[in-house]
Amino acid sequence: MTSTKLYTVIYVVLFAFATVQVVIEGLSGIGYEIAVAGILLLSVIKAVLVAGYYQHLLYEPRSVAYVVASGLVTAIALTFAASYSIT
């Protein structure tokens, strides 16, 4: 288990990243694709932080992470293959 201090730092980071996502959307100097990639990357980082530390996935047996990853891969496979099929 980790300390309350670490939980607090993570909370601040999550808070800041959410704000940055909206800021990126408002920036006019960067292209749409780069902005989308940046915003989604920040979401992925936030999700990893919540899952890893708040849900303690980092401290569980690795197999639990594989279970979660299996669900993710399943959903992503469906999304990408289906979307590609109509391009």
Partner: peptide, 26 residues
């Protein structure tokens, strides 16, 4: 373990909803 396994199923449920959104938007 039961909770995690359930959540894995819920990931696919939400994934399919988000996937539907992406598919329709594409």
């Amino acid at each position: 373990l039961g909770v995690w396994v359930f959540l894995a199923s819920d990931i696919v449920l939400f994934g399919a909803f988000i996937g539907s959104y992406v598919f329709l938007r594409v």
